[in-house]
Design a protein around this nucleic acid. Structure first.
Lengths: 352, 352
DNA sequence: CTGTTAGCGCCTTCAA
DNA sequence: TTGAAGGCGCTAACAG
């Protein structure tokens, strides 16, 4: 079965009865500037449509600077949620800017990382998004500095490359506001404080929470330190509750911590959304699976991915820019409601 | 700051004092066949290394058939876990076969889907992996049939394209075995049966579970139908338990169902891994976050992605092939242990 | 064994 | 307004 060859520009030109030059001008929108006859334009466009002509980006790149392709490189690995949503946003944004994305994952392997970057540059990508799953400080590979690049979810103080980041500080304030929207009856604690070198999110979130609370005249009572995992959070909170502490509000630094906190509270006979208000960060699916649903400040992965691509391709302004993407809140029923808001809710807290 | 231009083959040739032809032959491993002097080979290779020469794949594609780039197209969307792990596998496999991957997501939008495929073909990819997040029956776009393509996590009965799928049936048997490895004290039920047109996983899993149980002389007591979500599963199981049913083993068709089941069992005073054995499917992170950890039959996303790429690029055999990837089990502590296995931990075959 | 030459598909200066 | 011609970087007949 012989599949008919892809049509080339010259096929279109011949069919329209013009030279390839003319066809090229018309198809590239230079017809006005070149004062090409309306008739020729129509014939060429029709011929192109009839043949379903599509220019060959590879050949085109031999003459031009662009490939209509961008690279996205990331360390991914564990980042299920992050990686896929970020790519969803990146893919959609690229599409709407008429680009395709080349994706590469090094698992923190510097060698693989630069190898993948080389491969992308070999293919003459129009730019590269350098991403990290955990908001962090990085040292971008030297090559990237000489090329069009945008940092995603990370910063490099030694370079002036633009960066796209979630607005963690404002997210912290949002979390505080969400907590205070209900009426926490008791002191407020943050669960998950951990000095993690290279990771930025935690500290900024805590700053935001503290300031957000203070603005409402509430003092942050304390920090419950623990790694960002379910069992660690369970143990840490279980221990605190075991000492007789009875918090009114808990802010978990991510949803997995929230899961551990739910269990610990349940074990101590405390009802989420009734006795204790809980809010957290991430806005992952997990938050929605819990009962009562966990109110969570969302990491807008998809938007981050999209913004990065837009900045990379559109970035008219140029220059060192840091784009901070707002973190919206996904409301659940984990915050104690005040009397006024309590009656209308069709939702009843679970029997836990 | 003028960045020095990328070296071309002719730069290498000049520096080595040979013609570009000779340099090309040498760099493409044809030196033996062409009987090129060892001396020339050394000079060319050295020059290439010194200049850090890298061939331009776009230019190369103008002459050759290959681009060392493959496309991966999927419907992604909700598939956090699936999408990212699948891409991890695909990216790694592609890398080891000296390829890069072009990624595209349509969100079930047929128009966008074919548009993305066209874009990939425009770039002359060496092949396309057509993926779905949910194992399902599909109708691949017509164009794919004339090209090198592999189906991932889906099948199309009307085509002879090779497909890579998780071995759901054997996975079902594995789940049954995992459940029986402990000693379920009571009847066994499957939670999550749902007639879903187009989706294949559920039915195959249930078949495997049923056969696996029967092989051990155990009859599947019944199916608890419900959508594959936490709250739906909670309600369904809560209702069953409310009628006084006291199952010995529950097989959940995915981990989110497992989460709902845990809650329902707890609400009825039943302890997972003690009073009731629970196993499930997916092997998602969630299973590891639960306590006791949920024993789950793993969907090997990463392996699936890798196999698809390998089949696409290596596929020596050709012809209609269906590769079924085994589903391993991630053991937790959600299965009731027998007295014998309780101390040493060694798995004993069940006595039925 | 090595160099000359032509052409992949497209764009663009230059001339008509 | 349009066409001829050359070149982007690379490969492969076809001479020598």
């Amino acid at each position: 079965m012989k599949v008919s060859r892809k049509p080339r520009l010259s096929d279109v030109a011949r069919r329209a009865g013009v030279s390839t030059t003319t066809a090229s001008y018309i198809l590239n929108g230079r017809s006005v500037q070149m004062r090409i006859s309306q008739d020729a334009q129509d014939r060429v466009r029709r011929a192109a449509a009839e043949l379903n002509y599509r220019p060959n980006p590879n050949a085109r790149n031999l003459r031009n600077a662009t490939t209509r392709t961008v690279g996205v490189i990331s360390d991914l690995v564990a980042g299920g949620q992050f990686a896929s949503e970020m790519l969803t946003g990146a893919s959609a944004a690229a599409r709407s800017l008429d680009h395709l994305i080349l994706v590469g994952e090094h698992q923190g392997d510097r060698h693989l990382e630069s190898l993948l970057i080389e491969e992308m540059l070999d293919r003459r990508v129009d730019g590269i998004v350098y991403a990290r799953v955990a908001t962090s400080e990085v040292a971008v590979p030297e090559v990237l500095r000489q090329h069009n690049a945008v940092l995603l979810n990370c910063v490099d103080r030694t370079t002036s490359l633009p960066a796209v980041l979630p607005d963690e500080y404002e997210g912290g304030r949002t979390a505080a506001a969400a907590l205070l929207a209900g009426a926490p009856d008791g002191e407020v604690y943050v669960v998950g404080e951990m000095p993690t070198p290279g990771s930025l999110a935690g500290g900024l979130r805590i700053d935001g929470i503290r300031d957000g609370l203070r603005a409402a005249g509430v003092r942050l009572a304390g920090l419950v330190p623990c790694p960002w995992s379910t069992p660690d959070a369970y143990e840490a909170v279980d221990a605190v509750l075991g000492q007789g502490t009875r918090p009114g509000g808990l802010v978990c630094l991510n949803d997995r911590i929230g899961l551990g906190v739910y269990k610990a509270l349940a074990d101590h006979g405390l009802r989420v959304g009734e006795d204790v208000s809980v809010v957290s960060f991430d806005g992952s699916d997990l938050a929605g699976w819990l009962r009562p649903r966990l109110t969570s400040v969302v990491l807008p992965h998809e938007t981050l991915g999209a913004r990065a691509i837009e900045l990379l391709l559109d970035g008219a302004g140029r220059g060192p820019a840091v784009v901070r993407v707002p973190m919206p809140v996904a409301a659940g029923e984990s915050v104690r409601r005040t009397a006024e808001t309590r009656d209308d809710g069709a939702r009843r807290p679970s029997l836990g």
